[in-house]
Write a protein that binds this DNA or RNA. Sequence first.
DNA 1: TGTACATCAGTGAACGCGCGTTCACTGATGTAC
DNA 2: TGTACATCAGTGAACGCGCGTTCACTGATGTAC
Lengths: 235, 235
Amino acid sequence: MDVARGKALLIEAAVKLASKTGNFSALSVREIGKEAGLNPNTFYRHFASLEALGFLVLDLMVSGRRQPLREIRRHAAEAAGAQLPHPNSPAEYWACCLRKAKAAARLTIEGYFDYVTAYPETFLIGISGIAALSPGLREKLDEAIGELASDLADDIRIYQLLPMLSDEAVRSIALLIVKQTFLFSTDYINTPGKREETRRMALGFVMNLIAGSIALEVTDKDTMISLVEILRSAG
Amino acid sequence: MDVARGKALLIEAAVKLASKTGNFSALSVREIGKEAGLNPNTFYRHFASLEALGFLVLDLMVSGRRQPLREIRRHAAEAAGAQLPHPNSPAEYWACCLRKAKAAARLTIEGYFDYVTAYPETFLIGISGIAALSPGLREKLDEAIGELASDLADDIRIYQLLPMLSDEAVRSIALLIVKQTFLFSTDYINTPGKREETRRMALGFVMNLIAGSIALEVTDKDTMISLVEILRSAG
DNA sequence: TGTACATCAGTGAACGCGCGTTCACTGATGTAC
DNA sequence: TGTACATCAGTGAACGCGCGTTCACTGATGTAC
């Protein structure tokens, strides 16, 4: 037995309650204990305070989600890249990459929202309640967002999706995508009637950012034009 | 006397406390009464519940901030547009507008963050605590964001900043800007050491979105190139 | 192998506290006649 | 103009409740010798 039974039960109960109300900071020690089917003060056998539990939950959430999210991108990149011919020139190489990026973005967003639907707790808790608990937790949440963004930037590099952009541009759009995606996620969960629209908006957002970065960074006009045209074309 | 003295005191106290803790939903009736220097239950003379107060505060925030934010954009657009020569062709007209848009965006962001610094409560409360109070309030907050976005889209139209873009594209980037700007605002308030960076990121974000929309929507290649070049050039 | 001891997860009772909410009350202001 | 009455903002005491936290306790598991 790696982690004590009661501790696991308490964590589980806290996550369940927090995702139900969307507000981690409104939870009480006694409420969590009750939900876990334990004595109210068993809590103190495992955690020094609610904040300590918050730290742990946030840690679990982030460390537990990073890899799956990377897997989603790996699958998307592989599916998108498989049928591409070998390019004959640098410009053609960029074009190939961008076509792959476009397909990968769409597949990733599909996969991402499916994942959100499967594990909504993570995303509801992450955004709303937890940060209000303490400045320390707010800082940790910012850190987590930074890590997720850097994962995304790494994947963009690894799968050679946007080689025409500078590292800085990639990092910058990765951060924007991660932050905005949190907002899209809560919309997605909270308003089931607009899910299709939310997916479209998210994809449009990503395409818009990529197009903007290419327009601002690719200096050769013909190359820029042809790259932008790839994004512009349907499908 | 338009609104009762006690009511005004209670609203003021609630705003003050909520902006201090960044969590409206954690406030208590007694705490608010104490801060206002009133008997705990005077609260019930004016509000049916904490949620009712939340609605009112949100209303006041939004209705009180819409006009000032529009004024900031009006000043920015006027300052940016004053020295532009009269254009001789449609393409030149778009170019003029975009130059104006670029300057206006920078000035607006300057003015906006100054405004955030002056009235941080609005932005701290808006984002974090209030939505957790109830689904009704969350809905109202979404509505408010929609209104602010539609104000922004209107101003872009009125000052003819982006006539090369479709209405839909303008509305779409306006919504993204407003949402992202809320996040930038809390960063701005909470981490004073990174304010310059946050301003730069916000401006970069807006420029990136505009460049992306132009790249994706302007069909004439030469026009698109020359417009993008305006955004690309320094200053 | 047996015994003594330490550690650990969990229990149940109890504490003092701030909470939301209700009640009966006061005093000031407005209003009908 | 004066009087009687209604309305309204605010008061102070009181209620029952769930809260965080502490205490002394139990029983199971592991460990030293």
